[in-house]
């Protein structure tokens, strides 16, 4: 699958960020003017515990080259325990996706607190880099097919 990719190809990465920590961390990255690639599209969710595998699949199906889910650090969840449930759900789900051949770097999980603006920018850069190395996603992207098969 080695093909030449455009150097300045920007992947599209859907990021589900919890409102209390990671979204605030992303805001802080802005306030602090930490620059990162314009590849991330942030979807604000109340809690990482709100994110279901379905949502990640939906992003991939709709053509996301990568997905990032980020919540509060374990123990910091605004809703006490949401990220702990999320941690189990995503551990199983990520292993499963890799089992059926989805590249590990496509779907990423992390914890970013409201005070970690720099870390957010760093994660955004890193995830973008990982996804760029993989190239555009194809595996679970739904192609619009003509009516006749």
């Amino acid at each position: 699958m080695e093909e030449k990719r455009e150097e300045n190809w920007q992947p599209k990465i859907v990021a589900f960020l919890c409102n209390w920590c990671s979204y605030a961390g992303a805001d802080l990255a802005g306030v602090s003017r930490y620059q990162y690639p314009p590849s991330i599209r942030i979807v604000r969710v109340p809690c990482s515990g709100r994110v279901s595998p379905n949502m990640i699949l939906d992003a991939l199906r709709s053509g996301a080259d990568g997905v990032l889910v980020s919540g509060c650090h374990p123990g910091d969840c605004h809703y006490i325990s949401g990220n702990f449930y999320a941690r189990r759900r995503f551990a199983l789900f990520k292993r499963f996706l890799e089992f059926i051949g989805i590249e590990p770097d496509r779907v990423n999980f992390t914890w970013i607190s409201a005070s970690e603006g720099e870390q957010f920018a760093q994660v955004a850069r890193e995830v973008t880099e990982r996804v760029k190395r993989l190239g555009p996603a194809r595996k679970l992207v739904k192609e619009i097919e003509p009516c006749s098969r």
């Binding site: 859907v14 109340p46 709100r50 279901s52 379905n54 939906d58 709709s62 809703y79 949401g82």
Partner: peptide
């Protein structure tokens, strides 16, 4: 309104008002 229940429900039987799966999907798409 944390939505832990929504993400946990296999049947899509519980949702958050104005933060339901459909709306998040709409934003993602």
């Amino acid at each position: 309104g944390c939505g832990a229940c929504v993400a946990g429900c296999r049947s899509d039987a519980i949702t958050l008002k104005n933060l339901g799966n459909e709306q998040i999907m709409a934003a993602v798409e």
